[in-house]
């Protein structure tokens, strides 16, 4: 059974879709090799959530799996660990994406905080990060940073999408 809802078509925005993931991976790698920032939320996952809630004709689970594998390679974590986490979070977003899209941005940010908190909790169980002192604080605060970043990501990508479709 299929439901009818208003959404973007991947073929209309494929270059923007691909470029956004590449930029997300570059920025995540940049933050990872930075000397000062070790607890930044994954921008790639935020971008993946954005497209999941904008393009309804695909499940985005395969993209989540591939991006997770690339993340595992970048972070040198066990292959499949981030793939599992990305797939899980994307699937959870799939269950609510129609109502999520209808939410105002601040409410979406709240949902992102909850989803990232689940992501962090599962990361802790699966990967057992070595944390101490301030590391713990930043680790716990990562979902809040993700919630603060969400309006920026969503507005930027929505603006580029509009430009691509109507100019």
């Amino acid at each position: 059974m299929t439901t009818k809802v208003f959404s973007l078509k991947l073929s209309d925005v494929k270059w923007l879709w691909l470029a956004s993931f590449l930029i997300g991976l570059v920025l995540d790698t940049m933050l990872m090799i930075s000397a000062d920032i070790h607890n930044a939320p994954s921008l790639t996952l935020l971008i993946l959530i954005f497209w999941t809630t904008q393009i309804f004709e695909h499940t985005h689970l395969f993209s989540a799996f591939i991006l997770g594998l690339l993340f595992d390679a970048i972070l040198a974590s066990p292959l499949g660990a981030h793939a599992l986490l990305f797939v899980l979070i994307t699937f959870m977003m799939l269950r609510i994406r129609q109502s999520f899209k209808a939410f105002p941005v601040w409410q979406q940010s709240m949902m992102i905080v909850i989803y990232y908190a689940i992501f962090q909790a599962l990361s802790w169980l699966l990967l057992q990060p070595a944390l101490s002192g301030a590391g713990w604080t930043f680790y716990v605060l990562e979902p809040v940073f993700a919630g603060l970043l969400w309006p920026v990501i969503t507005m930027t990508l929505a603006r580029f999408t509009q430009k691509l479709l109507f100019h």
């Binding site: 299929t2 009818k4 208003f6 309804f56």
Partner: peptide, 15 residues
């Protein structure tokens, strides 16, 4: 572009 943008209404099935 507007017409093409507006006619995509399909979403994936839960199954």
């Amino acid at each position: 572009a507007k017409r093409r943008f507006a006619i995509n209404l399909t979403t994936t099935s839960p199954q």
